[in-house]
């Protein structure tokens, strides 16, 4: 999608989450940042709920231009879903090794996560370019296209923020090496990444598999 306009749209630039040093003893026993990330996830349920609702309402109301079933390539999208799932698994392992303070393995799996995200964005770029070029389904071709691009574009923007966050963690770990094992920050990043992956699981089913509903 064009410029990363999601910043203004999405709530709170994730990596701007405050970098609290002292682990203040909390009432729920959960660290503040983790708690705040789960609140952000609850808020994003409504964001993606609105987008999915809007897509489902508009998907058959396009008066002219291509229809959903004429455009979707289910094989490519399944591959990108595999890719995102694997990057989610890599995230869990990265966190595991971060807790276990195994620097090299932690850095390796964080890199795998970032690469997985980039591959997913590659799939999305390929999909969007084939839609625009091959099926001339531009952003404003019809209402189906607009709501499709809004939904998948917003999700893509969230994946981009996730990739930037992962690269930031990777670079910090490479620079600071053994001294820096901030597993709470890695866990919060993991929560964000898993949520983005889970939203894609629902989008994959609702958008690509409900074509004939």
């Amino acid at each position: 999608m064009m410029l990363d306009s999601h910043h203004a749209g999405s709530p709170g630039t994730a990596h701007a989450e405050a970098h609290e040093a002292h682990a203040h003893p909390t009432n729920t026993g959960v660290d503040n940042r983790k708690f705040a990330m789960w609140t952000l996830i609850a808020s994003e349920c409504f964001l993606f709920g609105t987008l999915i609702g809007n897509y489902l309402i508009h998907k058959d109301r396009g008066i002219s231009g291509p229809k959903p079933h004429e455009v979707y390539q289910i094989d490519i999208t399944t591959l990108s879903t595999f890719d995102l799932l694997m990057s989610s698994v890599a995230m869990v392992l990265a966190l595991y090794y971060c807790n276990a303070r195994r620097l090299r393995l932690f850095q390796f799996w964080t890199a795998v996560v970032a690469v997985g995200g980039i591959i997913f964005l590659g799939f999305q770029y390929y999909e969007f370019s084939t839609f625009v070029v091959h099926d001339n389904l531009g952003l404003s071709t019809n209402i189906f296209a607009s709501s499709f691009y809004l939904l998948t574009g917003c999700h893509g923007a969230h994946v981009t923020v996730g990739v930037i966050w992962m690269l930031a963690i990777l670079i910090t770990s490479l620079i600071k090496g053994e001294k820096w094992f901030n597993s709470t920050m890695v866990e919060v990043a993991g929560l964000y990444w898993h949520f983005v992956d889970v939203v894609w699981i629902i989008i994959f089913t609702v958008v690509y598999l409900f074509v004939y509903v």
């Binding site: 682990a23 003893p25 909390t26 026993g29 959960v30 660290d31 966190l95 595991y96 807790n99 276990a100 901030n182 597993s183 709470t184």
Partner: peptide
């Protein structure tokens, strides 16, 4: 409940 901060066992 006592929060055991960072080092919670994976």
């Amino acid at each position: 409940d006592a929060a055991h901060g960072h080092g919670e066992k994976a």
